[in-house]
Structures are given as structure tokens and as C-alpha cells.
């Protein structure tokens, strides 16, 4: 393509887009809805990824020993756990310490509730185990489960796994929607371009007769498709931009942000812009190509 022709193709493509009014509007809306769902799903998925990475890094295994196990027996178990491959540290919480922790967590108002209960029997001995690598958590907790004197093993990993599975489901449903919507958007775009080709059949005929190259004839229609894709990306991107920034500034510094830190808007929205505009352009381009191949015999 000649550089001097680019301006003409852009002009002709935009003219055709405007002339096609309602069809263009329908196509742009289809792209917008598609990219809105795609974009929102991506924002969710990227944040979920970030959260689970964050949570995994803080995972500890809580091992509750049987109620009758004494502090010294607990220390023996702790030593045994320390031997397991991949264990970084084991912290022993004795009967008394456990009792005190429970008391503290109740606060001053209810402190007296526990009065009179035996400090050495109420709360079982607990081991807090930290793995060197969070991914080994499950393997380690399985080994601890089989040991003598062990009553219950709680590892946060199973919660994270559940969360992962939930997010996978969300992502897959989103993906199915997006694929279906992309197909619909491409169909609408190719129809719009088909009408554009039909509207311009006399021009196309004359262009062919006077020796315009095939690509010279095709480009305005591809431009029109890509314009539909790009305009269709602007609206949902702007919407996500505004909404995400709002959510981020509301949550940042709050209690939730400490547990589930959100991704910084700058980096996330930058990535999102590339993805959404890229996909918008591709949908438009492909819709245009489908129509050109079917209806523009050059």
C-alpha cells in the first residue's frame, strides 16, 4: 500500500461507516458488549490470580493434637514434624498459651467467661507449621495427618484451591460468552461490510475498469471493519477504567485491601487497553475479510 493512499482509505472507510448508520451502530454495540464482558472477566481473573498468589504466600498449617496430649508429647511431635522434608518452621502452642490466646481474642468484656476452666485441658496443643514453598503445603499436611497424636490438620491451601476452582469456573463461563459474542460481532460486522460493498458496487466496478489494484479496492472496507472494532473498544474500556479506579480508590487502605490487595490501576488498565483494542481491531478486520472474500470479487 502506498503511503499517500492511506489517507484516502481512512477517509473512504469512515464515510462508509457513517453512511451505514444503523448497521454500524449495531456492529459497534456488539463489539462493545463483547469487549465489556471480556474486559471485566480479565480484570476479575487478573485480580484473582494476584490474590491467590498473595494468600498462598501466607499459608500456614494448623495441626491440632488430641486433647489428652501433654505439652511435652506435643514437643516430641513438633520435633518429628520438623524432620519432614520442606518444613521451614514449627511453632508449638502449649495448652496454656492456647488458653491465653483464646482469652485474648475474647477481649476484656468476655474475659471472665473462661474463668474456672482448667488451663491445661481446655485447649489442645497446637502446632503451627510453615512450609518452605506454599505449593508443598498439601503434601506436608497429608504427612502430618498420619502421625501419632494428631487430631486435625487445617491447611489454608484447601480454601485457596476452592477459590481457584471457583475462579476457573467464572473464567470459563466468561470465555464461552466471549467466544459466542465474538462470533456474533464478527457476523454483524461482516454484514455491515457486505452492505457497504453493495452500496459501492458502481464505484467498485469503475475502479476495476480503470485499473485500481485489488488491495486499493479492498482497503477501505478493512478500514471500516477496524474502525468498528476500535470504536467498539473505546466505550467498554472507558467504562472499566472509571469503575475500576473508583473501586480501587474506595478499597485502598481499607480492611479488605489488606486481605485482598487489588492490582494497581495503572499497570492493569495499560495491559487491558492493549488487549481490548487489539481484539477489537482483530474482530473488525476479520469481519471485513470474511465479507471481502465472499462479496468482493476483484
Amino acid at each position: 500500500m502506498r503511503i499517500s493512499s492511506i489517507g484516502r482509505h481512512l477517509r473512504e472507510g469512515s464515510k462508509s461507516l457513517i453512511r451505514n448508520g444503523w448497521m454500524s451502530f449495531a456492529s459497534i454495540s456488539a463489539v462493545a458488549v463483547t469487549l465489556l464482558i471480556l474486559g471485566s472477566t480479565l480484570v476479575l481473573a487478573m485480580n484473582a490470580q494476584q490474590m491467590s498468589n498473595y494468600v498462598s504466600g501466607q499459608l500456614e498449617i494448623s495441626v491440632f493434637l488430641k486433647p489428652q496430649v501433654s505439652d511435652s508429647e506435643g514437643a516430641q511431635t513438633a520435633a518429628a514434624v520438623k524432620q519432614i522434608h520442606g518444613v521451614e518452621s514449627v511453632h508449638l502452642v502449649t495448652h496454656e498459651e492456647g488458653f491465653k490466646q483464646l482469652q485474648d481474642s475474647l477481649g476484656s468484656q468476655y474475659k471472665n467467661v473462661l474463668d474456672g476452666l482448667p488451663k491445661n485441658q481446655t485447649i489442645p496443643v497446637k502446632l503451627v507449621v510453615k512450609a518452605q514453598d506454599p505449593r508443598q503445603t498439601v503434601a506436608i499436611s497429608n504427612k502430618i495427618q498420619g502421625m501419632r497424636n494428631v487430631e486435625t490438620v487445617l491447611d489454608g491451601k484447601s480454601y485457596v484451591d476452592k477459590f481457584y476452582r471457583f475462579m476457573d469456573t467464572v473464567r470459563n463461563i466468561g470465555l464461552v460468552f466471549v467466544v459466542a459474542l465474538i462470533l456474533m460481532a464478527m457476523f454483524l460486522i461482516s454484514n455491515t461490510i457486505k452492505i457497504a460493498i453493495f452500496n459501492r458496487r458502481r464505484e467498485i466496478e469503475i475502479m476495476k475498469l480503470v485499473g485500481a489494484t485489488n488491495w486499493f479496492i479492498r482497503w477501505p472496507f478493512l478500514v471500516e471493519g477496524m474502525l468498528i472494532g476500535a470504536i467498539g473498544a473505546v466505550v467498554p474500556f472507558a467504562a472499566i477504567w472509571v469503575v475500576y479506579r473508583q473501586i480501587f480508590s474506595h478499597l485502598n487502605g481499607s480492611f479488605i485491601a489488606l486481605t485482598f490487595p487489588l492490582l494497581q490501576p495503572g499497570a492493569l488498565l495499560g495491559k487491558l487497553a492493549v488487549i481490548m483494542f487489539g481484539i477489537g481491531l482483530l474482530i473488525g478486520l476479520w469481519g471485513g475479510i470474511m465479507s471481502i472474500r465472499k462479496f468482493l470479487r476483484v
Partner: peptide, 18 residues
């Protein structure tokens, strides 16, 4: 082309070959 003037119709043949 009905929407183009005489001049534009003739110019069209040159424009589209760049």
C-alpha cells in the same frame, strides 16, 4: 458516479490508481 461532479468523475480514475 451520480454523486460526483464531472471533474470528480474524471479525477476518480486517476485517484484510484494512486
Amino acid at each position: 458516479l451520480p454523486k460526483l461532479t464531472a471533474y470528480e468523475n474524471v479525477a476518480f480514475a486517476l485517484e484510484v490508481i494512486g
